[in-house]
Design a binder for these strands. Sequence first.
RNA 1: GCGGCCGUCGUCUAGCCUGGUCUAGGACAUCGGCCUCCCGAGCCGGUGACCCGGGUUCGAAUCCCGGCGGCCGCACCA
Length: 508
Amino acid sequence: MFTMALDEVMEMAARRGFFWQGFRDVYSDAPAGLWVYGPLGVKMKNKVIELWREKIVRREEGVELDSTCISPGSVFEASGHTKHFNDKLVECLKCHRRHRADMLLEEQAGLTGLEGLSEEELYKLIVEKMVKCPYCGSSEFSEVRRFNLMFEMRIGATGKDIAYLRPETTQSSVVEIRRLQQIARNKLPLVICQVGKAFRNEISPRHGLIRTREFNMAEVQIFFDPEYPDYDNKFESVRKYRLRFLPAYAREAGEVVEMTCEEALEEGYTINKLVTYWLALYQKLMTEDYGFPLEKVRYYELNEHERAHYARAHWDLQIYSEDLGWVEVVNNAYRTDHDVIGHSRLSGRELKLYSEKRKQSIVPHMYEPSIGIDRLILHLLLLNYRREGERVVEKLPRRLAPIDVAVFPLVNKPELIKAASEIYGTLLEDFEAFYDESGSIGRRYRRMDEIGTPVCVTVDYQTLEDKTVTLRDRDTMAQVRVHVDELKTAIKRFIAGEPLEKLGTPMG
RNA sequence: GCGGCCGUCGUCUAGCCUGGUCUAGGACAUCGGCCUCCCGAGCCGGUGACCCGGGUUCGAAUCCCGGCGGCCGCACCA
């Protein structure tokens, strides 16, 4: 399924230092699904997260939390993950389809109450009851294997206390809601934001950064009063905004159904103003800020059978590429009060939030948009990758490029090197700047094009005469001259989106 | 996890069938130098690989087995 562009992007990412498969250079038996970010990848990842903070956390007045990856076992008892993550499976040896052992026994032998049985006991029953594969009819099965998508670990010396590496940051937000609401002085809706690692023991990690065993998420949990979601004003700002859905009913046709937020809400499709607003917010984030073309973004509705155990409504925000097709990049789930109730029940602690409107504490509902950072970064590199003849350009949104600006002496003469180095030193104060004097000027430009550096500064002989330098636009290769004193301002304006021509006098 | 195909410098590859002239060759990239007044130019030089382990053999990149990884399909993706 790897086509040219993805292949080239993956190769470039490893060669230039965005990301690569971890540990493999030294240990050939390193397991799949563990990816490391290199120097450029770290810079880009930070910028991707910072943009999310600016557009979502800050503007929606979110409170940011940084919890631990190691989580006590009870947390996932309460959330239902241990139950839903611990399937005991058998594989049909003839057609290689997998089935849940308890389901087969229930359906074919009428047995119930199988939850407590061990793998061995289940296998014995399958043989005894002559269970058949529902697909091919064979009655030869592999032994029962426990399939656990969570990484399990033991805490302390006794090894008695089970803990898990979290498969989502969500639960660590949910258990802290009371304190967080207090810190936020009884704010409701309460918007909790968390960036962090999550872990899933995938059976077969594939497609590079798409399915990994350890990954980065940027999640928002909005806790609200289901009776009074309280989003009237915010909703007004998106009332006429057009959302792009692939509703479950339209899936056969495969045609995106566009509707305004107003229409989506009136049809009851998007449940309430709060959910509708956040759907609009994230569609805008992905298209206007991360820069994906509108036609390559859609909300794919998951039907009743596909949804997770906690969700009442669920749309995957997907991004389209030739190479990977539609891929989920943001998971948007209306989780109701499922998680809050779960933790209350198991812990015996009341997990309620105070509602000013009702003058009492209420059990909040929760809506959660959750970004897969690694998938987002891969798609940014993939969809902005351009090969123009021999020239390779990453046309990343300017503010997401790992390097803001590069500085070169036109040729390697001592006086030009001196002037360029000085300018580089100044730019380092405000930018991710990069200096290079190797090879020819053309080669240096091309290297910067490949990693998406939006603008290059070149110091030439004229610089020595009148203190002007040239600014070169990655996308057009056009150049303007700018006075050194104006340089920082010009670069800032350029990264903020102004066209190059407005920043200086064109070069012939 | 199952099945098919595959695994040589960073990348693409020569060599493998027919074991020894392979201290593994080339191109591009990369690094250093020279040159260069604006787009991977040229010249010189350098770093750099047989996925890992075991077996057969006097001798293994080459033959055999196992592991790991990659691609594709199935399954999985709460």
